[in-house]
Design a protein around this nucleic acid. Sequence first.
RNA 1: CGGGCCGUAGUAUACCGGUAGUACAUCUGCUUUGGGAGCAGACUGACCGAGUUCGAUUCUCGGCGGCCCGACCA
Length: 395
Amino acid sequence: AQLLIRAGYVHKEMAGVYDLLPLGLRTFEKVVGIIREEMNKIGGVELHLSALQEPGLWQKSGRWDDEVVDSWFKTALKGGQELGLGFTHEEPITAMMREHIASYKDLPVYVYQFQSKFRNETRAKSGLMRTREFVMKDLYSFSKNEAEHQNFYEQCADAYTRVFERVGLGETTYKTFASGGSFSKYSHEFQTLSPAGEDIVYISKEKRIAVNEEVYTDDVLADLGLSKDELVQEKAIEVGNIFSLGTKFSDAFNLKFKDDTGGEQSVVMGSYGIGPARLMATVAETFSDDKGLVWPEAVAPFRVHLVELSNGNEDVKKEAAEVYRELSEAGVEVLWDDRDARAGEKFADSDLLGLPLRIVVSEKTLAAGKFECVERAGGHTSHKSMSELIGHLTA
RNA sequence: CGGGCCGUAGUAUACCGGUAGUACAUCUGCUUUGGGAGCAGACUGACCGAGUUCGAUUCUCGGCGGCCCGACCA
């Protein structure tokens, strides 16, 4: 969060509440785009539910009471009628789906959204990791039976794995056994190993398996066929979780369907969450160095940082403008630093922003007829002509 | 929610019961120009309320806000 603030990606509005600035928004949208693609691949359809919540729905499931859920933000209409600001959406989505599910022919169905959640955390901390208002991708699955549900649950777990691989966290992210709460024996979390994490997990690198501290008991280990000798304790950031909900919500809201024999059955549900901003922060945390951020290409707000060192030289400025125009026309996202500032300041800022490729245009490069290209990760430097550059970036 | 600390310029900080200093940032001028430049000048500040006091930014109380440790985290 410190780097993201310093580099101008986010602004801290208050404790646990952050604004996304232009660079941060672009990065956030890259992450959202990857998640959206993977959710669509497994049959998800996107919708958007309201943040304002009617108490009646939550009373049916027993989750309106502050004694039961202590993270509610509640507000009221002018007439005094209470309203809640949603911290999740099982209740409204289940109630709403009654209008869309009547027959086994309507199932299964998978709906998801990117939507703001409000949680009145007793203590916001760890920068963007634990905030009071945040966008969550939440997907809800509705299946005919447990087997069909399990099939999707695994598909979604695989989709999550692909999301974390695509944002560059494949190596350090573990599918982790966690408490299933009142819904099922286990749920699964996706935990990214990091000293900045708030969770404790026990991992086996060989088996690519992890167990959350909360279920790290002899019984569970025996159940999973693991022994304590093969597990190592690590701190980790929870970047996603998937839940089997059984029929808890469908029963509470009378969400039933007619099967092919005319019998009535409860819909089997699951819910699946990823917080894109937390994921973005985890990527920042994982790859940054002492000079600043280092974005993987897939989530970088721009692919190229065009750094113009003109010292007032009009030919250099024209050349930089030409590079900007050509790359943009070739479909490459370019951030152009055309400020009238010293080289040192521009390089330092460029390192801080962390875009994958820096292209320098200066009197030197003009004389050489080739641009200087520096990779932010690793620092590899090369010199390329315009055509080589475009070939390289569009390959 | 339990415990601790704090609130001074855009940011970070210092001193003080007698109206505030420094650094960086910003603005102006000159010099400088491939790794956060130099000199000169300028601008900018005590969270809110009450109390004590001749006088409060300083002390006391309340409010609001922030940070840290722990608990919690569907």
